[in-house]
Amino acid sequence: MNALRLLRRALPLLALLLLAPQAAHAVVKAESGVGFPHDASLDGHRIDWLINITGVFVAILFVIMCIWIAWACVKHGRTHAAEYDHGDAKKSVTTALVLSASIFFVVDGNLFYWSVVDLRDAFWNFDTPRENPETVRVEINGRQWAWDIRQAGADGKFATADDIVTLNDLRVPVGVPVYIQIGASDVIHSIFFPNFRQKIDAVPGTINRLWFQAKETGEFQIACTQHCGVNHYLMEGVITVMTPEDYAAWTAQAGRISTLAYDAEDPSTHWGWEWKETD
């Protein structure tokens, strides 16, 4: 047990040692087409770091493999006498097993450990948005080929006449959790916020959820990542991150417009559902 704890402590240290390429990466601007899209979220850096550090690990392994192959090819060609070795001596077997296990514990172990931590502390931790009184809740319905977006309006309740309903236009305030519940009405879609490192499928008959927190204002894109038919490639939306003041002004105005536009006779606009606070 002690050894395990030691290992856990050592892994981040080892990772730190290999951080140099990260610095190099930070210098390269995302806009140049070689790296991640700009990260505008509170927790996105966790994913970027984990992908990059694992990238460093596998690059090392890959380079070792290439050097090994090159060495054998150059040194042990036709003129070299082959060594008659079945590789099943105890020493060979132990070496293979120990090497495989070590690589597994370092590379996969680091990846697994941090993935579990990140999910528990951030990406799949729904206590954070649930317990924060300032959380902005949004319902989204995916359909061919647009995102219907709904916020609760002045009464704080979903599926009522004063809901703020927009098309492909998501507005959220900066610095507070954005908690989204999402369904679909025709086929499966998948909502992707590249600049917030979040994604979840929108499945007919199911309500899925995701959350993130914006750390800066600006306009970013929403994409569909599940093939959903002919115009899949056009199913884009915009997320606008606003200052709290701008957001308050927008909700007031959009709430008035939505209330005026509400059509009790048109069931196709009534796709909203009562917010589901599960677990």
């Binding site: 060495w71 090819c73 003129t79 070299h80 070795d85 590789g87 495989s100 597994f104 990846l111 697994f112």
Partner: peptide, 29 residues
Amino acid sequence: MLLTLVISVPAEMLFLNWLHTILRGSIRF
């Protein structure tokens, strides 16, 4: 997730065995 990562153990063993097979051989290209 855990089960998926476990697959890398036998995969690594295969790689090590292939790499050892060509090492100290008399390779005909």
